[in-house]
Design a protein around this nucleic acid. Structure first.
Lengths: 202, 202
DNA sequence: CACATAAAATGGACGGCGTTCACTCCCGAC
DNA sequence: GTCGGGAGTGAACGCCGTCCATTTTATGTG
């Protein structure tokens, strides 16, 4: 019942995602089209619409993979450091590092927005939250803070700050600064911010 | 020599920019097309290419206007505060505020990249630098730092951090945070980071 | 084995996009 | 009054996302 059955629907889904990620990495967000993806997997465009609802659905799925990849990268970095502050710094560095190593994937994650009628997307939100909780728990080990709301604020501020460095690093609008070490800014931000917390507390 | 002469080339340029900005604000980056702009100003697409080299040129020009608008907004905010730390905080708040009030313009400024062969664009880079120098000079009044390189690093870290908050606020990937509280993160970041600088120095 | 069925896959169509350019129009100079 | 040449046009090209009538084919049934 069906034509080829060379590939199951699930296999097709994986092939599609893999092909699309390859095109994204090679040609950037704007070079990624449904037609190119279809060509790459050896099917026609029409078939793509039996695998994904539309292009937004495909892009959002890739973004979930990217979120997972960042999460994995952050987790490795965190696991390699035992002391709390170095671990938080390692998280920041790893975040910047991912953005620099995978600029197109990183940019699409934050630049692609689903049309309102396709939101919310729990599978995406859960993943982002999981990533954030990694930061929050690392922050909790560094700052002695009992109020969970305040702790979340601290983690949000820190993560936003590090994200800003990564975003500017990848935006290309930042040529005047010493090109090289964006990770230095991340370290500076985390170290100094944490010092400020401690100064204000005790 | 010419047909209508209803509008000078310079007038056409202004009309085009104004029309494009209106479409950008109403429909977002992805809804902004050369054809729509041409319709809006009552000329045909072809004519647009006698006014701007191509779409990238038009978008980059709009981005320069946006940079100027942010600069003006920051300047107003800075001028309204005399004390150094509140002035720096006012800059951060104003930056976030602009992003929230003009999300499409803000996003396009950072998401649109010129193709390599159209870079560099001095008119853009000068404007960004001017905006950054506003931040740097406000930072200089807050932190007692004589080394200009270190001062620039401090300003970069701070501005990147604030930018990250603005970027996440506008990205829509941040739903669990209260919408209104983004300026609080900015204040928190600036206050605590500056406290950290002072703690490490003295 | 033959046939019917229904899922799988196709490919052409539609409207929109950026960009180009041969062409028409008409102002201003003579 | 005519005519050169710049201003302006609009059709064409090759992309794009999306849809759907049509064709293909693996499988269940006799």
């Amino acid at each position: 019942m069906g034509r080829r059955n060379q590939h199951s629907r699930e296999q097709q889904r994986e092939m599609t995602i893999a092909a699309a990620e390859l095109i994204l990495v090679r040609e950037g967000f704007s070079g990624l089209s449904m037609r190119k993806v279809a060509d790459a997997i050896g099917y026609t465009v029409g078939q793509l619409y039996l695998i994904f609802r539309n292009q937004d659905d495909l892009l959002a799925t890739i973004n979930e993979r990217t979120t997972d990849a960042i999460y994995g990268h952050l987790r490795n970095a965190a696991d390699a450091e035992t002391a709390p502050l170095p671990r938080l710094q390692a998280l920041g560095s790893a975040y910047i590092e991912f953005a620099q190593n995978h600029p197109h994937r990183f940019r699409m994650l934050f630049e692609h927005r689903l049309p309102p009628e396709m939101e919310p997307r729990p599978s995406s939100e859960t993943r982002i939250r999981r990533m954030f909780e990694l930061v929050e728990s690392a922050a909790a080990d560094v700052v002695a803070e009992n109020d969970p709301a305040r702790l979340r604020q601290i983690a949000t501020t820190l993560w936003s700050g590090v994200h800003g460095i990564a975003a500017l690093a990848v935006s290309g609008k930042f040529k005047w600064a010493g090109e090289a070490d964006f990770r230095r800014y991340s370290d500076d931000l985390i170290t100094t911010y944490v010092a400020g917390l401690q100064a204000r507390h005790g």
